[in-house]
Amino acid sequence: MSTTSLKASTDRGRAGDKIFSGVSLTAGVLILAVLFSVAVFLLVQAAPTFSADPTEVTGGNGFSAYILPIVVGTVVAATIALLIATPVGIAVALFISHYAPRRLARAFGYVIDLLAAIPSVIYGAWGYIVLAPQMAKAYAWLAENLGWLPIFAGPASQTGKTMLTAGVVLAVMVIPIITSLSREIFLQTPTLHEEAALAMGATRWEMVRMAVLPFARPGIISAAMLGLGRALGETMAVALVLSPGALGASLIKTGNQTIAAEIALNFPEAFGLRLNELIAAGLVLFVITLIVNMIARFIITRHKEFSGAN
């Protein structure tokens, strides 16, 4: 009789479970389907570029000669952005979560979240009108005094519309993302571990280094990766701030270009093979993002044992 009562269990309470599993399954399938269709679109549309006669591709030397300089440009711009934005973002987040008085911290948090909502064209315009002329003065000084470094080789751009300016504008755009995400994670540090550090005689900074930063490490990496995603894919701001040209080592001369800006600037009047080229460039950006994310995953899992999750 106990077996019958087990088998005869009613469906009470099961309906919600079924609906939920249905909804989550649909969502999962949907996102995969969308990604798949984008990937197929990229591959199909990009294909003609790879089989085309090298002389017909822009630049006349085949696709790789065309794409390589702008791949380097993209990576350089995103790297500059991340090198500036990660430390600044972490510092701002720490200030909000562990240093600022509570009221100030809340107001500050709202302002940072607002910054993340400003459209990129505004950042671009700000970079172009306000930042670039100021940077131009600094570039003149850099070219004169540090010109022996290839990245600061002169003559410096008069307008300031260079790779370094683009990198700085991207950094400003990425800082709010890194800050908001890191702040959330810093706030979740277990009080237990913070108090453990303080009770041993740690100063506030030592407590942050001992308890907060190690705990937040995977989160900081994820935040930086999201920021990097924005920096790699940013079109409008870069298109406005950078006057494009051939690839060069100097960050303060006119020149260089990123994939996203290249696509945005040329897409409106592109047709035929040129259109395929630009889509192929998009495919390359897709692959770069994928590789960067895989590296980030690898870094996070490498320290899994010491993550405190066990």
């Binding site: 237990l192 571990h193 108090e195 453990a196 009770a199 010491f306 405190g308």
Partner: peptide
Amino acid sequence: FQRPNPFPT
């Protein structure tokens, strides 16, 4: 402390 709190990292 009440709950053991070695640094997990």
